[in-house]
Design a protein around this nucleic acid. Structure first.
Length: 511
RNA sequence: GGGGCGUUAGCUCAGUCGGUAGAGCAUCGGACUUUUAAUCCGCUGGUCGACGGUUCGAUUCCGUCACGCCCCA
């Protein structure tokens, strides 16, 4: 605890963190002086309005010559955060940043008088508003010759080094606001994220899909194999779960005749954190009646390509140092083919033989339980040995029915379901299948899942009687898809960690 | 859960074979009326992540813990 800063309203910054320091103390003293001298608007006025944005000015006048600007006097009111300050005696330069970019102000003592003297005490990080005529400096930078300048918001905390920015990953995630102030690329990631989501909405809206919202708090968590978060509804005295997937609700809507529905929202899974897992993550799920999984694969391919084209204007891009050409047709292989490719010497004819698979799993150190049949063992093998090799966009299909309790079995081969997963850069991006709409088969699958859960498999599904009842009313032949939006954004923004594409990723509380 | 690495000034980082620490930038004071990581002069600024052990002495060595990053399960 240090001196200073004891305004009644002020949390004092150091009440818990104790991170007050000399720099902050200096700024608090400046703020105290501002409060003393402040007029009607106080130290935090809100009566300045901009009529121009930095990026727009750069775009509109960046090419204009100094002569042109002089011949066509253009007055602008700009505002933003002071990112750069250079005092040179009786004249100074300042750069302010708004959401579109930066613009330089040229300040002269002669013009500004006492405001110029005040400016000398303002700090990088403060928020200013100013107005004046556009001109071009001797070195050619478009600037505003300010004849009015105001400090609108005093910043009490120093920003990171202008040149190095904020390098510490922990601080970037914990204080995303500072990261966003300092890093153009970070801001760009989240703009791209928004563009991706908008593209997908437009894509589906154009196909006459209906965007819907289904419960995030569910009495029975379903639609995926995952451990849920629990919560409690006090008034109903009811334990509830944060959803692990919206699937079973969305398919109820297909039963209801909506035919084409999607939802983009958060799922919650009570699992570990990694570069590819955040406890809450964003999923696009869609369901399409009168279609099968192959139709969905075609759409995924089309949308992925369309995204690249919309975001970058081209189908070639780089992710983590590797080139991707989305113009090439996306590969389609079965689970078993993918395993054979990644496991030289494996016997392709024994991939449904549990004894053989257990032996392979033992050799590779893949854990399994005694209840696991060949389908589960096969997927264990696939995930361990084949997934990370799937760099170019690849559809892997023919997943075992055993691990696909909501998927329609293949007509010709009852071992597999009409299901695929979509991989890019070794990461699962999407999962889709022809939906199981046989209520009696679904009931049997739920019973099998419930039995596994009884035996301690925490990821096994609950029996959802209302969902079975819905299917008993009749669900038309349907295909569905889930897309991991965060991972898709990682690919298109070349981000190595899911935390780079989530504004506020989950962290342990600060010490 | 296991392994590796990290945590030093506001930021980015050095460093101390154990004797309580330094640079650049920022801040603060001064000079400078078109700068571009401006320049010049001067001064500040640290519980070296936390706790314990060894030691005359620990930021440094050892242990435990916290937080983070990476890899594995």
């Amino acid at each position: 605890m240090k001196k200073n800063g004891n305004h009644s309203s002020g949390p004092g910054g150091g009440d818990e963190g104790g991170d007050e320091n000399k720099l902050i103390a200096e700024r608090r003293a400046k703020l105290a002086e501002l409060r003393r001298a402040a007029g009607a608007g106080g130290a935090y006025p809100n009566d300045f309005r901009r009529d121009a944005l930095a990026g727009e000015l750069q775009a509109a006048y960046g090419e204009r010559s100094g002569e042109w600007l002089e011949a066509n006097p253009t007055r602008v009111h700009v505002g933003g955060r002071l990112m750069f300050k250079r005092l040179m005696g009786k004249a100074s330069f300042a750069k302010i940043a708004d959401r579109t970019g930066q613009i330089q102000l040229y300040l002269q003592q002669e013009t500004l008088g006492p405001v110029y003297e005040a400016f000398k005490g303002w700090d990088v990080g403060d928020i200013l508003g100013g107005s004046g005529l556009l001109f071009r400096t001797r070195t050619g930078e478009l600037s505003v010759r300010a004849d009015e300048l105001r400090l609108l918001t005093k910043s009490l905390r120093p920003l990171p080094d202008k040149w190095h920015g904020l390098a510490d990953t922990e601080t970037r995630y914990r204080r995303r606001y500072v990261d966003l102030i300092m890093s153009d690329t970070s801001r760009e990631v989240f703009r791209t994220r928004a563009h991706i989501v908008r593209y997908l909405r437009d894509f589906l809206d154009a196909l006459d899909f209906l965007e819907v919202e289904t419960p995030m708090m569910q009495p029975i968590p379903g639609g995926a194999a995952a451990r849920p978060f629990r919560t409690h509804h006090n008034a109903l005295d009811l334990d509830m779960y944060l959803r692990i997937a919206p699937e079973l609700y969305l398919k109820r809507l297909i039963v209801g005749g909506l035919d084409r529905v999607y939802e983009i929202n958060r799922n919650f899974r009570n699992e570990g954190l990694s570069t590819q897992h955040n406890p809450e993550f964003t999923m696009l799920e869609l369901y399409l009646a009168w279609a099968d999984y192959r139709d969905i694969m075609d759409w995924v391919e089309k949308a992925t390509r369309g995204l690249a084209d919309t975001l970058n204007g081209r189908l070639q891009l780089t992710c983590q140092g590797r080139q991707y050409d989305l113009a090439q047709p996306f590969r389609r292989v079965t689970v078993e083919q993918a395993i054979v490719e990644s496991n030289p010497g494996i016997d392709p004819l024994s991939l449904r033989d549990a004894t053989y698979l257990r032996k392979r799993c033992d050799q590779l150190g893949i854990a399994y339980s005694s209840d696991d049949g060949p389908g589960k063992l096969l997927i264990g093998l696939f995930e361990k040995t084949a997934e990370s090799a799937l760099l170019d966009p690849t559809f892997v299909f023919a997943y075992p029915v055993e691990v696909s309790p909501l998927s329609r079995p293949n007509d010709a081969d009852p071992f597999i379901a009409d299901r695929f997963e979509f991989f890019i850069a070794g990461r699962e991006i999407a999962n889709g299948f022809s939906e199981l709409n046989d209520p009696e088969d679904q009931a049997a699958r739920f019973r099998a899942q419930a039995a596994r859960k009884e035996k301690g498999d925490e990821e096994a599904m609950f029996y959802d009687a209302d969902y079975v009842r819905a299917l008993e009313y009749g669900m038309p032949p349907t295909a569905g898809l889930g897309v991991g939006i965060d991972r898709l954004v990682m690919f298109f923004t070349d981000s190595p960690s899911i935390r780079d594409v989530i504004l506020f990723p989950h962290m342990r509380p600060e010490a």
